[in-house]
């Protein structure tokens, strides 16, 4: 089956086969990252514009590196440095980027739905690098890539996502990716941040950490996004840590071979015990490295590359 999408906007709209295609492509690119010369000519002559209207460290650098390793030119700019601060609309800014001969746009935006909006407006590919609380498709892809790498097939595996689910695009994209790949997902956290509506996305909702962690193969922690919340969602970070923070005692409830994940940035001592973040079971930094390979795959495929042709590219 050939890859036909020009945009990567959501995981929700992808089929299981398409997810497999991206993962297979990423696997091929992953080997490049271990080489001394990390560069293939797949996107030579193309220009990728990283258009980040929200702060980002990992995602933005990973997209930049991914584009460079594919031999593309890459231009990155952020909200503070752009004309959006002068009142230019997203529509106008994006059309200007296109007029400046960009071949692809990678968009990070605080408003859910804005990558879809741009994809309908522009004739160049748009890749969603996180839209509000909606989706963060490349994050979920690097997460399942990492889980596969560590655990093999995810079919029938239990994955616990713990923390601020309500405001999390990472949670939503992972829910879609994991359920499509046959994993059983449980979302856990305080009832104000893990509303029962999530059951309609095909996951279990729990507020009891012990039973949720019992037979999990993966525990994925999410940062408490205090910048997105009003004070009313939970009493304090201290209370959150005491009720839901992953400490050593609680980590002993999960299976011995289970892995601990976090999309970053981590708040040490809040959602995760500092030592646990650095422990053997933590794959947090491997996630970051895999993120480059996954973004190489996303850029390559949306630029018109085919999964089976990656070997030749290499």
């Amino acid at each position: 089956m050939p890859w036909t999408r020009r945009h990567l906007i959501t995981i929700e709209e992808l089929s299981r086969e398409e997810i497999e295609q991206i993962l297979a492509t990423a696997k091929a690119f992953r080997s490049i990252l271990d080489r001394r010369v990390k560069r293939v000519p797949a996107l030579r002559g193309k220009t990728v514009v990283n258009f980040f209207l929200e702060p980002s460290t990992r995602t933005r650098i990973a997209f930049e590196m991914a584009a460079k390793f594919l031999s593309a030119e890459v231009v990155s700019f952020s909200a503070a440095a752009s004309s959006t601060t002068k009142g230019e609309t997203l529509r106008d800014t994006a059309q200007n980027i296109q007029a400046l001969n960009a071949d692809m746009i990678v968009l990070r935006h605080s408003a859910a739905g804005s990558p879809l909006y741009l994809s309908r407006l522009l004739h160049i590919p748009v890749i969603n690098a996180g839209d509000g609380a909606h989706e963060h498709p490349t994050q979920a892809l690097l997460d399942v890539f990492t889980m596969r790498d560590k655990l093999g097939s995810l079919r029938g595996r239990k994955v616990v996502i713990l923390g601020d689910i309500l405001f999390s695009r990472v949670a939503r994209s992972n829910i879609h990716a994991l359920t499509k790949l046959g994993a059983h997902v449980t979302v856990v956290g305080p009832s104000t941040l893990v509303p029962y509506w999530f059951e309609h996305l095909g996951v279990q909702v729990s507020h009891d950490l012990r039973s949720a962690l019992a037979d999990a193969s993966v525990v994925m922690l999410l940062r408490i996004q205090h910048e997105r919340q009003e004070s009313s969602h939970f009493p304090s970070l201290g209370e959150y840590t005491s009720m839901f923070g992953l400490n050593k005692t609680r980590a002993s409830w999960i299976k011995p071979d289970a892995i601990i994940m976090h999309p970053g940035p981590i708040n040490r001592g809040v959602e995760i015990d500092s030592d646990l973040a650095d422990s053997e079971r933590s794959v947090i930094l491997q996630q970051v490295t895999n993120g480059i390979a996954v973004r190489m795959a996303a850029l390559y495929l949306c630029a018109g590359g085919q999964p089976e042709a990656v070997v030749n590219v290499n």
Binding site: A112, G132, A133, E135, L166, R169, R172, W197
Partner: peptide, 18 residues
């Protein structure tokens, strides 16, 4: 309804809208 833009429910949960 601070910053709210659509009905709270299954659809807002899916779409990630307030």
């Amino acid at each position: 309804t601070q910053a709210a833009v659509m009905n709270e429910g299954v659809v807002s949960t899916r779409l990630g809208l307030r």
